[in-house]
């Protein structure tokens, strides 16, 4: 198994439980859509799986390593080397060009392959835009850069949190197609958080989160 959540529990500081005994697993190359209502805890689950956030009980295992013993530095290393993230807000570095943004994660992980990044830019239709800055791009273009940045490090696991949440329909379709295409091309596993059943339908598996439990 690439990623396993085993009876994971997590509460907010106020004590309200968000994740209540969640178990989930994802095999290499698999794609899984995680759906749920607003506030159902699906983003939290993604953050926990991405080692961005801690959890109170149970265990998360990524590539066979349990996350709970890791400190901040260990979790940072895991994020850098073992997975990639795509956010709803794109989270590009505004002061870096498209090309620099594309290469960023790969460079941080010391896995930068110029040919592969050039190929990604081409696949994502960004070749003409590589010298621009994010503020001069449309939302769809920005998200394509974010996907390129995530795939540039050739991750075994891609975690995407509402990647089309800030995009109009046309842009959403393009972005989703490109992302799924690249995931298929690289054989990466994908955990995608979305509230859209249409999008979820396009993935191998689906899980629904409600009241902090997988239903």
């Amino acid at each position: 198994m690439l990623l396993t959540l085993d009876h994971v529990r997590k509460s907010y500081p106020g004590g309200r439980p968000v994740l209540n005994d969640v178990s989930l697993s994802l095999d290499a190359g698999q794609t899984l859509a995680l759906t749920g209502e607003s506030g159902s805890g699906k983003s939290t689950l993604l953050h926990v799986a991405a080692a961005l956030d801690g959890f109170d009980g149970g265990e998360v295992t990524l590539k066979g390593s349990p996350l709970s013993p890791l400190d901040d530095a260990g979790r940072a290393e895991l994020r850098r080397n073992s997975l990639s993230l795509v956010f709803q807000q794109f989270n590009l570095i505004p002061s870096l060009t498209v090309a620099q943004n594309l290469a960023l994660h790969a460079r941080l992980a010391d896995r930068y392959d110029p040919d592969w990044v050039a190929h990604l830019a081409d696949r994502l239709g960004l070749t003409e835009l590589v010298d621009r800055y994010p503020e001069h791009l449309s939302g769809g273009q920005q998200q394509r850069v974010a996907i390129g940045r995530a795939m540039a490090s050739k991750p075994a696991l891609l975690l995407a949190d509402e990647p089309t949440g800030n995009l109009d329909e046309t842009a959403s379709a393009v972005v989703l197609d490109l992302m799924l295409g690249l995931v298929a091309e690289t054989g990466a596993a994908l955990l995608l958080v979305t509230h859209s059943m249409d999008i979820a339908a396009r993935l191998d598996r689906r899980a629904h989160l409600s009241g902090g439990k997988i239903t």
Partner: peptide, 10 residues
């Protein structure tokens, strides 16, 4: 963003 991409704070 840098931290999300795996850079430790220290």
């Amino acid at each position: 963003t840098l931290r999300a991409l795996g850079v430790a704070m220290p």
